[in-house]
Design a binder for these strands. Structure first.
Lengths: 222, 222
DNA sequence: CTGCAGAAGTTGACTGTGTCAACATACCCT
DNA sequence: AGGGTATGTTGACACAGTCAACTTCTGCAG
């Protein structure tokens, strides 16, 4: 073992990420990450000014992975921006459901994005993915005209809210057990698309509001 | 000063709440609350099994206040369930914006509702407020028919997501500075109501998507 | 009125955490 | 070859949550 680790910074981020996934947001500790990287308690301070900076790096990695997921989902529908938008929304909710602790860290109070430009950039990039796709939909006349930011932030709020409710297990048990993240996300975007108001002309009303039951019930993790 | 405080439990909840509002969710500490209540470090253990239980009590108080706000808002529109629903949504977002730290605690990972029946009840009560009002709207033919829970959870996701984005300062600066919580909430519910899809018949399309600028810019708190 | 059992509060200690100051070592460039 | 600097280490401090053992008060049975 060399005195110098040689690659400590990424190793610490990786260790902290592992800790995050194993023990949740409160289980991430500077000393723990250092131990896991086989290095002494204060070694991290050569690479991060404080614990928050390490957490920010972890969160930034999460945003990058999230952005990649969303981009991949959108690429599956190159000719149909609306489908692409839906796919991105679903990808986000699935990401949150799958990496709950990571999502909590990314959005929680532990990291103030303001103080970490890299994190800020990664988060903004994800946001802009949504906004530009909304603009594409407007150009394709699939979404009504208007300030795209004013529309995108509603969609963003919706999927983000759904994600946090899922992660924090705050949805009613009946809802949570009946449908999986994918169904919930698809349903939510469809509702947002068609609106919730009762229509005067019943002929133009959307299909009756109904969710398909999920096929499998995934194991709950502690 | 009596040896016995006489009223410690509520005093501790109050002290922790004050700490929460002054120093944020990470600034709440068992010892700090005890100090503030003029009592020794371990006195809280006579009333709460651990720190989480104290936090849960604080969060429960938050849910109760939130519920009261929403009920008050709804009462202003006894004859119009849809307006009542909108008022409740606005009340929730305003509550979150005004008591950011409290909202974070209520929804964050620090308290697992599962372990605290009282907290669980208070949260469910707020949720049911929304659901029943959705049902009222359906009865009044203001909202399209369908499983009310499947509609309510979308609305819930939307306002909750908007609230957390506001609290965590994750909305784009342009959005955040141009509009206040009330305008954002009103806008979001209107968009959800009318939907986002481009309508085939332009005559029935809703008013052009536009937000009114806010009148005053409230001071930002650290 | 008198005790006394138990509720309510205190002291002291243990472990674990974030962080700092002072010191040690290895790498790199001249 | 040698010094400067980036990188790690040791030791220490304050503060956090929590436990065990002790003290004080309160209410109630006799």
């Amino acid at each position: 073992m060399a005195y110098h680790h040689g690659n400590l910074r990424p190793a610490l981020v990786e260790a902290a990420t592992a800790l995050l996934e194993e023990r949740g947001p409160l289980g991430v500790t500077l000393r723990g990450a250092a131990r896991r990287a086989g290095v002494s308690q204060t070694a991290p301070y050569r690479h991060f000014p404080d614990k928050g900076a390490l957490l920010a790096a972890v969160a930034e990695g999460g945003f990058r992975r999230l952005g990649a997921s969303m981009r991949r989902a959108a690429r599956a529908h190159p000719a149909d921006p609306l489908r692409a938008l839906e796919a991105m929304a679903i990808a986000l909710v699935r990401f949150a459901a799958q990496h709950g602790a990571h999502y909590q860290l990314m959005c929680g109070p532990a990291v103030r994005g303001r103080d970490h430009p890299g994190l800020r950039r990664a988060a903004v990039a994800a946001w802009e993915l949504l906004t530009t796709t909304v603009t594409d939909c407007q150009r394709a006349r699939q979404i009504r005209p208007g300030d795209p930011a004013a529309l995108a932030f509603v969609l963003w709020s919706l999927v983000h809210g759904l994600s946090t409710l899922l992660v924090d297990e705050q949805l009613p048990a009946a809802v949570r057990q009946a449908w999986g993240p994918t169904e919930l996300a698809r349903h939510a975007t469809e509702v947002l698309l068609e609106g919730v108001a009762a229509r005067a002309a019943p002929g133009t009303a959307p299909a009756p509001l109904r969710l398909r039951r999920r096929r499998r019930r995934p194991a709950r993790r502690r």
